[in-house]
Write a protein that binds this DNA or RNA. Structure first.
Lengths: 352, 352
DNA sequence: CTGTTAGCGCCTTCAG
DNA sequence: CTGAAGGCGCTAACAG
């Protein structure tokens, strides 16, 4: 027993499929109320559900919006996803989800799959990687997107543009001022901490991580402080934990050499890493903020109840998702797709 | 410039569309290698991307799997979503996402939308509500699902079955033993805590919340303890925070009346609520676990670094997502779709 | 093994 | 205002 079709509804109502279509779906011209009534009744009694696939094929617009994230379980991405989902709902469209793991090659696959499904637009929330090994995959991703746009697709990239993507029609970037914000964070921290700085960063070439690292260093420099040593690790909680473990030993050595040494300050390029690092420090007996200060980036909602409260940079994640989605839907959000954030100093970096 | 079609590829290769289709897509019989080669070249040079909509229409199978959650930014759901996504990828299918907010009416809408898109299967991860006001919406949801199944769709519901849904072919329930697990949790807690118990629960009628509450009460009873008083609030962090605030006053009163009163123990029906409650208690100066013990449910990954470590019940969320997805894909996962969890006692409910 | 012929379910010109 | 006809892009029976 298959779902009933428009033709069946039409037959039951004693009209032509064309008329039935006009009644049931949003057509320009409305048939007479009497006949419309019959059609609607027929539709209900048959439990008619329009076949969106067929509609999409006929009007070449699917009402689908593709969302690419690294990992939907990562709170950073799920917050953005919520924003995307919200707008999609408002616009009566549906979200197609793809978690990729983060390589440009996987993202290209996802984009291709979305293109195959004729998604009207695509939002890419993953961060760009400029690692040498990813050069050719990046090029292919850019090519794929370019083709998608030329075929009338709209794409919005969160964070920074896709490496090598042409600024074609329909290609938007929701810029996140990572560098500027972490520069400010560094400035604020340098004002209260006289000790040494360390940065826990993601793998080299990960754009978001690189930008935040660079901005932080610039801030330190502006404050007349020496550059921080950078520990590279994976861009997630585990990475933070490992790096935290290493730093713990160094911090212990520091205090052993000089019990009155100035308290060091750690900047992890995202909150999840900061939390991991904090866990490692705690395990080694280093208390925060007494033995070391630590700050993150993103201001992940789920992590706000963490104690000591984590200093971080608040990013309007949901809003980013909404903005990205709107920008692909023709709604002119204004040329300036730059979002803003703000430094949030809390207990984890308290003085003293 | 529209995307090129199979017909164009065929023409360029000098073959019929049928042949081109056989080469490019997974057909049973493979054409000769020489001609296949030509077709492939033509496809590449035209940048051919098969139109999944058209394919779906023709073979009446979309490769789509619909996922219904209350809120994708809630770590409980995003963990399940990760599992779903994972399996979908393995099976080369795509995930359609719908966040509903949690009412049966919205879920019905989502299911209808998935049905319209001819999703091959649907996974519903939200919790059921048996509130009186939801009775008719539940009925409609059940009817919608039933129809979907009769039309050949597969559905998997996480947690508990949809109220009133018929046990038709293609309808699976991934049962979560909420009651049993919280019963065990209560038993374990009763063994170390002699004080009073409180339960912070969601709104009445929310199945998951009700099951966990009931199980906990049963456990207390089995341990020879009086039933715990239940505070109903919303099923999220805010709800936990509010309830925590109320309890804080009562706990303070308790200690004021008797400075040596036995420490009370709070069970929040999910981790996110527990964290909210803990935050409220802390703000009112009640320390955990010294002034009060608290436990949650779910063992949310992002919350594991919370201190004091939260006692909870570990649920294999990702596995649940995987299982649900597999069960809808014909892969016979075995009749027993019951997952298991385990009590995890940690510092937040430490004795003394 | 290839090509031809019908659809899949719907929308949208066109006539009537 | 309604109905008939063609087409969206692809697949799956049939012929050849």
């Amino acid at each position: 027993m298959a779902a009933s079709t428009l033709a069946e509804v039409a037959k039951l109502a004693g009209v032509s499929p064309a008329t039935a279509s006009r009644v049931l779906n949003g057509s320009a011209r409305k048939p007479g109320e009497d006949i419309a009534e019959r059609v609607r009744n027929a539709a209900v009694s048959l439990g008619y559900i329009p076949n969106a696939q067929a509609q999409a094929l006929a009007r070449s617009s699917s009402g689908l919006i593709g969302l690419v994230v690294h990992d939907i379980a990562d709170p950073y991405f799920s917050a953005i996803a919520r924003g995307v989902q919200e707008v999609a709902r408002e616009q009566r469209r549906m979200v197609l989800l793809a978690s990729t793991g983060g390589t440009p090659e996987e993202e290209r696959e996802a984009v291709a799959a979305f293109a195959a499904r004729r998604a009207d637009s695509i939002v890419i929330a993953g961060t760009r990687s400029t690692q040498a090994g990813h050069a050719s995959a990046n090029k292919e991703l850019a090519a794929e997107l370019d083709r998608y746009c030329r075929n009338g697709g709209h794409v919005a990239v969160v964070g920074q543009g896709v490496v090598g993507a042409k600024e074609t029609e329909g290609y938007h970037v929701v810029a996140v001022p990572n560098e500027e914000l972490s520069r400010r964070l560094a400035l604020d921290l340098a004002a209260i901490h006289i000790g040494q700085f360390w940065i826990i960063a993601g793998p080299e070439g990960l754009a978001t991580s690189d930008e935040r690292t660079k901005g932080f260093q610039r801030g330190l420099e502006a404050a007349g402080r020496p550059a921080a040593e950078v520990l590279r690790t994976s861009f997630n909680r585990e990475g933070g934990y490992k790096a935290g473990g290493k730093l713990a030993s160094r911090i212990q050595a520091l205090y052993k050499a000089d019990p009155n040494a100035a308290k060091p300050c750690i900047f992890a390029v995202n909150d999840v890493m900061a939390i991991g690092a904090a866990a490692a420090l705690r395990e080694k007996g280093i208390r925060i903020p007494n033995g070391a200060a630590i700050a993150g980036f993103d201001d992940i909602e789920t992590l706000r109840d963490f104690r000591p409260a984590l200093s971080t940079v608040r990013l309007p994640l949901e809003e980013i998702g909404r903005l990205a989605t709107r920008s692909t839907a023709g709604e002119d959000v204004g040329r300036t797709l730059e979002v803003t954030g703000e430094v949030a100093l809390r207990r984890s970096t308290e003085k003293g």
